[in-house]
Amino acid sequence: QETFRLRIASGHPPVQTYVNLITTFFVPEVTKRVAERTKHKVQFVEGYGGSMVKVADTLEGVQSGIIDIGGYCFCFEPSNLPLHAFQVMLPFGTMSPTASVKLAREVYDQVPYLSKVLEDKYKQKLLGLIADNGYNLGTTFPWKTVADLKGQKIAGAGLNLKWLEYAGATPVQSSLPEAYTSMQTGVYNGWIMFPSGWLQFKLYEIGKHYAETGFGAITWHGLTMNTASFAKLPKEVQDIIVEVGREYETKTGSVNEENYPKQLEELRKLGVDVRKVPDEVRAEWAKSLADWPRQKAKELDAQGLPATQVLELTLAAAEKHGHKWPVRYVVK
C-alpha cells in the first residue's frame, strides 16, 4: 500500500484539446484504475500553461525528472527531434486525426529509432502520440487565389512554415498563446492553424477568414514519462499507465475528428467566412512542394537519421488508410 505522487505538466493551457484530455481523461482514469485494480494509489500534481515547464523546455523537464510526465509539441524541438516532425514534411496528408495518429503509430512501430531516441537520449518513455485536428489557413484578410497571399506575413510553429513558401508569403515563427495579440497588432495576418486553435484562442475575433486548405492533420505532439520515474513504479501501475496512455493516444484522434466539423460550424456561427479551397489549388500547391520531402530526407539522412525510410513508410501507410496524395511525393 503506497501512494505515488506524479507531476504531470504541459506548457500549453488546458483549453487546448490535448491538454484538456490530459486533465479530464488521462489523470482521472489512471487515478481511478490504479485505485480499483491495485493496492496502490497514484496522486497527480498538475501544472499546465507553463506553470511548471514552458513549451520549449518540457522535453528537458521530463528528461531531468523534474516533472514525471509531460505533453509537448515536437515543433519546439527542431534540434533535438528533427525527424519527429515527419508528417509535416509531407504536406496535404490525411485530414483525419484518427488516421493521422494511427499511421503515425504504425510508423513508430516499424522504426524503433523514433521511440528509442526518446528513451536512450532523452530518458523518457513515449506513453502516447497526440494528434491535432487538420491544419488550414486562417487569415485576417479575404483571399481568393494563391497569388493574393504573396507578401503577406503568416505565422506557423516551426517546420510547417515551409508550406507557405509556394504562396510567396513571409513566414513568421510564433506560438498559440501569443497568436491573438500578434494578429491584432499586425505582427502577422494569418496562421497555419487547426479549427480548435482558431476557436480556443479566440482568433476568430480578428481572423474572419478561414480557408480549408487541408494541409493535413499532423501527429507531432507526444505524452512522455521519465524512464526512472516509470521504473520506480510497481509493474501493475506501469501497466495501467501504458494502457491509459494508449487510450489517450486514440482519443486525441477521435475527439479531434469529432470536433472538426462542429468547430467549423461554430466558427461559421461566430461570423467567420469558412470556405473550401478547390482541389486544383491544393494540387498546384502540393506540386510546388514536391521536391521538398526528398531534400528534407537527404538532409536528415546525412545526420544519420532514418528519414527516407520514415517518409516512405508514412506515404504508404497514408495510402493504406485511404488517403490520396495530391502529388505522389518521391523520396528516394
Partner: peptide, 15 residues
C-alpha cells in the same frame, strides 16, 4: 558543437 538553434527556417538563431 552541435549547432543547436532556436526558431525555424530563415529565422534560426544559434543557442
Amino acid at each position: 558543437m552541435a549547432g543547436e538553434y532556436e526558431g525555424e527556417g530563415a529565422l534560426r538563431v544559434p543557442a
